[in-house]
Amino acid sequence: MNQIKFRKFLSPILILLIWQTIAINGIVPTWFLPVPTEVMKTLFGMIMSGEVPHHTLISLGRAFSGYLLAAVVGILLGLLIAWSTIIEDFFDPLIELIRPLSTFALIPIFFLWFGIGNTSKILIIFKSCFFPIIINTIAGIKGVDAKLIMAAQSLGANGFQLWTRVLLPSAMPMIITGLRISTAIAMMALVGVEMLSSDSGLGFLVIDAQRTFDTERVFAGIGVLSIIGFSLDKLARYIQSKALSWHSETSLGGGM
């Protein structure tokens, strides 16, 4: 167990060592590749000054708002679409047309309509998270074994009970997978939109440092983003394994 843990740290440590050696010996200029220990010092300073917490909170607020909106609308609409073919036929063409469109293609329009403030940023995160969630919800419900529904019916389940006791729990692995995928997508969209137009947030922090060739700050910002992304993914996986402890596949991978 301990040995496995150690092996997993080997490659990051090795890369940091090589990087440190290259950078400290001046093989490349530090504005091109800063010294890792200096980056950590800079990062520490930025945390202590409140700069990193400030931008992190703003970023997480945006990401969370867009994500939550996508989760609520995506799951509800997905359930409605899986429930009724009339609703499905109405929304299906819209979904098929907008889904393949790159989120970034919509940014100019969102800026035009909603301004460059928080609204369009949240809507862009919403757009990128919405489709994985709704598609997984629909597929989850439609993929429920028809015979399993029969089994529940013969035990006395009526229409509403079928939804709450069979369809939803049965589709839950797919729905939760959609939710988990979307946490990573939310972070990606967040950074993109904050880099394009913003005066706050971690994406802004990174792009602003790059404009002034302050490469240490660029790397510090990237480091923060990477840690947030990593933690969110771990958290999502943890929640997934807890929620689906009955599920043979996820419970195998659940042991963090």
């Binding site: 074994d145 089994a151 049965s170 009955w246």
Partner: peptide, 13 residues
């Protein structure tokens, strides 16, 4: 009551 050939248990229960 029917006992199905394929068991059809509810895996989340």
């Amino acid at each position: 009551s029917i006992v199905f050939q394929e068991y059809l248990l509810f895996p989340w229960r």
